[in-house]
């Protein structure tokens, strides 16, 4: 009985570890609205196809931090940082927020202090802190994707390593 319980316990643990991951043969998922499937494992390579949000791709092989994958519309390379080992669950469209890559920063960045927070701030007497947060949003939101990409390139970070 004890032996059987031990076997069952390890079977349970095995269930926990079958979470996939970035290994050849596993299916992983895109996590951006648009992810380019590239001809070579480098950021400036040609594009084979552009994959949508949460598209499943199967890893054929790994080369450093790049994965050679097959998707429904072709085979190519994707930087591992652009993939998730679990399928992203978020559906932003149901919230009336961003539904496309181009709308992402603009819609959220332009979001004013919404009604609930505004009432909360007033009730709690947090006007100065709310003004600080608005200042932060302005400072932060001017650093968009282009600035981050320049920073990554200059520092040899992300897919530019």
């Amino acid at each position: 009985m004890k032996r059987k319980f031990t076997a069952l316990f390890f079977a349970g643990l095995l269930c926990a570890t079958l979470g996939g991951g970035f290994d050849a043969g596993n299916t992983v998922f895109t996590k951006r609205y648009e992810t380019d499937l590239l001809t070579d494992p480098q950021p400036l390579a040609g594009t084979v196809a552009t994959l949508p949000f949460a598209a499943g791709v199967k890893i054929i092989s790994l080369q450093g931090k790049w994965a050679n994958v097959t998707a429904t519309n072709g085979t190519g390379w994707i930087y591992l940082g652009n993939l998730a080992d679990e399928k992203p669950a978020e559906d932003h469209s149901i919230n009336g927020l961003q539904t496309s890559a181009s709308a992402t920063t603009a819609s959220v960045a332009a979001r004013p202090l919404d009604n609930v927070t505004a009432q909360y701030v007033q009730q709690e007497g947090l006007g100065q802190a709310a003004a600080d947060v608005r200042w932060l949003e302005r400072q932060s939101d001017v650093i968009g994707k282009a600035a981050v990409t320049r920073y990554l390139k200059a520092g040899g970070k992300g897919e530019y390593q």
Binding site: R32, G81, P88, A109, V133, Q139, S140, K145, V148, L152
Partner: peptide, 25 residues
């Protein structure tokens, strides 16, 4: 503020929720 945002956003870009708008203060 710019320094922490550049470092933070370079990380967030490859996080599991890259489409969120992150602010670092």
């Amino acid at each position: 503020t710019r320094r922490v945002n550049l470092i933070g956003k370079s990380l967030a870009y490859y996080s599991d929720r890259p489409e969120l708008t992150y602010r670092f203060g």
